[in-house]
């Protein structure tokens, strides 16, 4: 049994990649397309429930060259022959994902998205914008913990109802004070928490939500033609982030049931989270890391929905110019328009 899996076209033997628009496997040589079920007949799904030993190095099945891979890289390409290669040990045993959302966006679409996005970054330095780094956009299956849980929440606070009326020369303002208590519970499904230290949690959060209607049972076949990472954040550590999020969701939900008041302030809140279950999943992300003056700037697209997050360096002269132009415009409107109204 080899430690690296390479999917081949059943008809011609060339490398077979997953094709996002058709959601099928497509051979770039003979243009044959295969549904998951057809593909499974030729290449049976391997059961990788047992942990496989990590090797010091992995060899490309097509050309025999050594694969260049980080400790967490689980799917990649051979840098010599460009064949897609999936490292089986990194999808086996405890690293075996339960589900996957396949890519919907092609690399070309991701590039277009980047170009549209970078055009709108008015404060990005010109040389950063013109950098032809767009070919480095890579489709990555990012490891996520999808958590299901139950939350029991309680909030209490003080609310007011303000009523005012006039009598004679006097205005009366009546403020009624109420003590408000809300208790409730809810179930949460598939809250994604980034399971890779390499990926920035903040940006991963910004490209949410994913559409779970597309979620599939995991198969290494989906990895073919993309990069993939395995998790290096344990579920127990990720659940701390989950708990913070659920606490906020639950209190916000309870807060939403306090209505009909002029004001409300929460004095205490308590949320208990139980029945936490996690499911290890691979979610599709297009990633571009641009280096500029020794700093990395991330650009990310949700590989399923196309939602964008990212940052660019800021060019101070451009910001100042913008501020000055806005100042002058507002000043002109204020002076000449204001003079009309006075």
């Amino acid at each position: 049994m080899t430690s690296v899996k390479e999917y081949k076209c059943p008809s011609c033997g060339a490398g077979l990649d997953f094709d996002p628009p058709s959601q099928k496997w497509k051979c770039h040589y003979c243009f044959n397309e295969y549904e998951k079920s057809q593909f499974d007949k030729f290449d049976e799904e391997e059961i990788l429930n047992e942990d496989m030993p990590e090797l010091d190095s992995y060899i490309c099945n097509s050309c025999g060259a050594e694969l260049i891979a980080d400790n967490t890289t689980s799917a990649t390409f051979c840098i010599y022959c460009k064949s897609p290669a999936v490292i089986k040990s990194r999808f086996s045993g405890r690293f075996k994902p339960k589900s996957v959302i396949p890519f919907r966006l092609t690399k070309e679409q991701a590039k277009e998205t980047y170009q549209k996005w970078i055009k709108k970054r008015i404060f990005a330095p010109k040389d950063f914008k013109l950098k032809e780094e767009v070919d480095k956009v890579t489709g990555v299956y990012a490891p996520f913990w999808l958590f299901d849980c139950k939350a029991d929440g309680f909030i209490s606070g003080e609310a007011t109802k303000v009523h005012s009326w006039q009598r004679g020369d006097y205005k009366y303002t009546q403020t009624k004070y109420y003590s408000v208590v809300r208790r409730g519970n809810a179930r949460y499904k598939k809250i994604p928490v980034d399971a890779s230290k390499k990926m920035d949690d903040k940006y991963m959060h910004l490209i949410e939500p994913f559409d779970y209607n597309d979620i599939k049972d995991f198969s290494m076949k989906y990895m073919s033609g993309f990069m993939a990472e395995k998790y290096d954040v344990e579920a127990a550590d990720a659940s701390a982030i989950l708990k913070d999020r659920v606490k906020d969701y639950m209190s916000e939900r309870l807060r939403g049931t306090v209505n009909g008041y002029s004001s409300y302030t929460t004095n205490s809140r308590q949320v208990n989270i139980s029945e936490i279950e996690q499911c290890y999943s691979m979610l599709p992300v297009y990633l571009l890391v641009n280096k500029y003056k020794d700093k990395s700037h991330i650009f990310m697209v949700n590989g399923q929905t196309g939602k964008v997050a990212g940052d660019t360096p800021l060019c101070l002269p451009k910001q100042i110019l913008f501020a000055v132009v806005v100042f002058i415009l507002v000043w002109i409107i204020g002076v000449f328009g204001g003079a009309l109204l006075v």
Partner: peptide
């Protein structure tokens, strides 16, 4: 799934 089990406005 959301159930409001207690609602008090005093």
């Amino acid at each position: 799934s959301f159930v409001l089990s207690e609602r008090r406005d005093d």
